[in-house]
């Protein structure tokens, strides 16, 4: 950082495009840093669900910011900084904790074609009010038990509100893959949460199958 700033201060001639902008050590940097730190909580809670470990989550988030600072010249101002930071963190997570990034081609056999292969029967579903009785910790556990590829898409889309296209960018996959992973993840979540609801007696065994 400091070396770059010094160089920039020397008033080096063109080309400057490969360097941080000359002003970047001053006002522009501050705004980058301020915007970036604004995503701390959202990055941290995602890291916490990904790593399932507060100490690892802290390390992951800290390294994400260190890397973001180092590569801030590659961030295009006015574009989606949240998605950019999440992409950095996501890649770090896979590299560090999972021994490398998953290829865009499906590890889990997902494809757009199979997206709706197992549609639920209309009428064979419990009613939404069973959800009211489910404890927060049960939901967190269910999310943390999802395979990482499914967990991350739920965290991005459902928890952090990413649009499919932004989640696709973060994950480095086509939108169709986002949709199919999301579909599978939600089906699994629904299964485990409704299973919990049944055990807890919130919804009785076989409710829904009877229909009327």
């Amino acid at each position: 950082m400091r070396e770059e700033a010094k160089e920039a201060g020397l008033g080096l001639p063109e080309p400057v495009s490969l360097q941080p902008e000359p002003q970047s050590a001053g006002a522009a940097d501050t705004s980058f840093n301020q915007e970036a730190i604004g995503y701390l909580d959202t990055l941290y809670r995602t890291a916490l669900r990904l790593t399932r470990d507060p100490a690892k989550a802290e390390d992951l988030v800290q390294d994400t910011y260190v890397r973001a600072l180092r590569y801030q010249h590659s961030y295009r101002r006015g574009t989606n900084m949240k998605a950019w930071l999440f992409a950095i963190m996501r890649n770090l997570f896979w590299d560090r904790f999972r021994g490398g990034r998953p290829e865009a081609l499906s590890l889990d056999g997902d494809s757009e074609m199979s997206l709706y292969d197992t549609l639920p029967d209309v009428g064979a579903q419990p009613e939404a009010d069973v959800l009211d009785g489910i404890a927060a910790q049960e939901v967190i556990d269910a999310v943390e038990q999802l395979p990482e590829l499914h967990r991350e898409v739920v965290l991005l889309v459902d928890v952090e509100g990413f649009a499919y296209k932004d989640a696709a960018e973060v994950m480095g996959v086509p939108i169709g893959t986002v949709m199919s992973r999301l579909h599978r993840a939600r089906r699994q979540l629904q299964r485990s949460l409704l299973g919990y609801a049944r055990e807890a007696g919130i919804v009785s065994e076989g409710k829904g199958e009877s229909g009327e």
Binding site: L40, D41, T42, L43, Y44, R45, L48, R49, V61, P120, V122, Q125, P126, E127, A128, L131, I134, A136, Q137, V139, I140, V143, V154, L155, D158, V159, E160, G161, R186, L189, Q190, L193
Partner: peptide, 21 residues
């Protein structure tokens, strides 16, 4: 079914977005 899916989505968000750094 829509109510259930929306309910699931809200539930997951509400339960997972509480932690702060």
């Amino acid at each position: 079914l829509f109510d259930l899916q929306v309910g699931m989505k809200r539930l997951v968000k509400r339960c997972c977005d509480q932690s702060t750094a």
